[in-house]
Amino acid sequence: MNTNTPDLFDHPAPGGGSVWLTGQTDLATQLADGGYHPRTATDPDLIPPAIAAEIITRYTWPGELVLDPDCGPATTLVEALHHGRPALGLTTNPRSWRLARTNITTAKRSGAWSDGSILDHPATALTHIRAAGTRGTATLAITALRNPTRSTATTDLTTTLTHTRKALHPDGHIAIVATPTRDRNGELIDLPTAVLAAGQAAGLVLVHHAVALTAALHHDGVRTRAGITKRRRAHNHPSGKPIALTAHRHILVFQPALATVSAVAGAGHHHLGNTAVREAPFLHIGRTDLDAVGAAA
């Protein structure tokens, strides 16, 4: 097990930290049950439907707008529709746009909430779409940290978050989902710190840091769902040392700085929006056990 991994909660937030049991059902089953197009699974930064649903139900009520400024194949939007929330997504990737439209259309035909849209625009367009009635109305924005090994990943995320704030309700939340990623030497990249830096640069304050499992939790531990190919690659990594399989996503939840100050000031009146009151108790699993979980087969 890699002992040089960053602490899961190096950056404590007012809402604390928690572990979400979002991996009890495997991803293939989640996608099949949700009616997603088969190519949805090929997105390398895919937000699993169970994780999207967990965030949505924790931070919104039915009827509140959910936004994804870089939506990929739109699992976040589809789960919002299935849970009775209107949804709006943006992407400039033609393949993602077509796939997102297919998934949203399928969800609507299956009886999900009908108010779901996907725009062929970058997140910067959120600053200029007042006519669409979106500015300041989204209760929740969810998006993935995409292509995290790029040198511009953090600055690009800062730009996305800065413009996303324009569409966010003053008491709304922005959740960033980051998939654990290793460098060429097999060492885990400290993505939580990168996401935190991007959020702070965009004028946001971290209010919660969760670990959402993508593996099943059993009485005898966490079990990954990696196939034989991934397991062999982990044991025969180019770095010359075996690496542990990851089994989770990081979820960093932010609010605009002014909203956070207001919430703290009004805590005596229980004006906390939809945040900490719905958080599960923090299950402490330790410093390295999740970022480099050597889970059983």
Rank of each mutant, 00 (worst) to 15 (best):
V207S: 11
D68G: 11
A28F: 06
A167Q: 03
L157V: 09
L272T: 12
A141R: 09
L67G: 14
T102W: 05
N185W: 02
A74W: 08
P69Y: 07
I56K: 10
I47V: 15
H218L: 07
H121T: 12
E187Q: 07
S151N: 12
V293S: 01
H270A: 14
T60D: 05
I56N: 12
R225W: 09
I243D: 08
L67N: 11
G84Q: 01
V277M: 02
I104V: 15
T42M: 05
G34C: 08
H218G: 08
H271G: 11
R278A: 14
T162S: 15
T40R: 14
A257F: 00
L161Q: 11
L283V: 10
D70I: 11
R225H: 12
E64F: 07
Q24L: 09
I228D: 15
H209T: 04
L217T: 02
V66A: 11
I104G: 12
L140R: 05
I56L: 12
E79K: 03
L168I: 14
T106C: 13
L217N: 02
W97K: 07
L81I: 08
W61D: 08
T275I: 05
A74N: 12
G84M: 01
S96I: 01
R231A: 01
A210K: 08
A138V: 14
T229E: 09
T92L: 09
A247Q: 03
A267D: 05
D45V: 04
